[in-house]
């Protein structure tokens, strides 16, 4: 089976400081990979390198493109990479306002990706927006409101709808439940889990929250100081951590 994403020896430095280094893994279609680790361990750096937002200093990130199969996204042309960014890839930011247009209505936010791939029928775009708002539990009567009128949880759900509307094959998420209060988090997690299953999504989810990976991730990568120190099936890593650091991480969180 061809991996959807193949990462080889990836490294990114900020001057002398390590962002992340020596990262290699394969992600297969339909798989959800969690990335956990303490603050500053390089999770966001890695995710941004994978999604084409940062240019790594070393390594390859090969994506199984529709036309040409596995292709290094770091060396491909910028137009091609940006095209992936609005079709086959989706990126869910921690702060919804980084991933939404705050001065555009909810419907316009969801419709943007459709229009970016040349949807030119207003009625169809709007119908699709209504459908997607419904799928993330935002009622139709809010479609013409701007996200500024929405709660944090709604904004995050809107961001998810906006990203998934074009049926991406790979979703990057950086702390999608961060900054939300616990009950809102739980609802969002439920929603994410059912969407991932329904759409058979492949995803890479960065999080601090082991409950998130327990619920969503098939596999887990633990990072520390820019290195991947442990990887495996989620249950395996959480129930039987091999590294001392992971043991500490698991025990400290599970006690909360």
């Amino acid at each position: 089976m061809t991996p959807l994403l193949q990462v080889e020896n990836l490294a990114k430095f900020y001057g002398h400081r390590i962002g992340c280094t020596d990262v290699s893994f394969d992600l297969f279609p339909g798989e959800v990979m969690g990335i956990v680790g303490e603050s500053g361990s390089g999770k966001s750096t890695l995710l941004n390198c994978l999604a084409g937002h940062l240019t790594p200093d070393r390594g390859a990130v090969r994506f199984d493109t529709r036309a040409e199969g596995l292709k290094d996204t770091i060396t491909m042309s910028e137009p091609e990479r940006r095209m992936l960014g609005r079709t086959d890839w989706a990126f869910v930011h921690q702060h919804a306002r980084d991933g939404l247009r705050m001065n555009v209505s909810a419907g316009g936010n969801v419709g943007e990706r459709l229009m970016a791939v040349n949807a030119r029928h207003y009625g169809n775009i709007r119908a699709e927006a209504i459908d997607w708002l419904g799928r993330v539990e935002i009622t139709q009567d809010r479609i013409d409101e701007r996200p500024t009128a929405f709660s944090g949880g709604m904004q995050q759900r809107l961001q998810i709808a906006r990203n998934l509307v074009t049926g991406p094959r790979l979703v990057f998420m950086d702390e999608p439940t961060g900054g939300l209060d616990v009950s809102v988090q739980a609802r969002l997690l439920d929603l994410l889990r059912s969407l991932v299953r329904e759409m058979n999504l492949s995803a890479i989810i960065v999080t601090h929250d082991l409950a998130v990976v327990r619920l969503l991730a098939d596999r887990l990568m633990v990072m520390k100081d820019g290195h991947v120190i442990e990887t495996g099936l989620t249950d395996q890593v959480l129930d039987d951590p091999q590294q001392a650091y992971t043991q500490l991480l698991v025990s400290s969180v599970l006690q909360v």
Binding site: P79, R82, V104, G107, G108, E112, M115, R120, D144
Partner: peptide, 17 residues
Amino acid sequence: LEEYGLMHVKLYEDISQ
């Protein structure tokens, strides 16, 4: 890069409002 989807977002907003 001829990425003009945003122009239609503006027209979409017009119609929806």
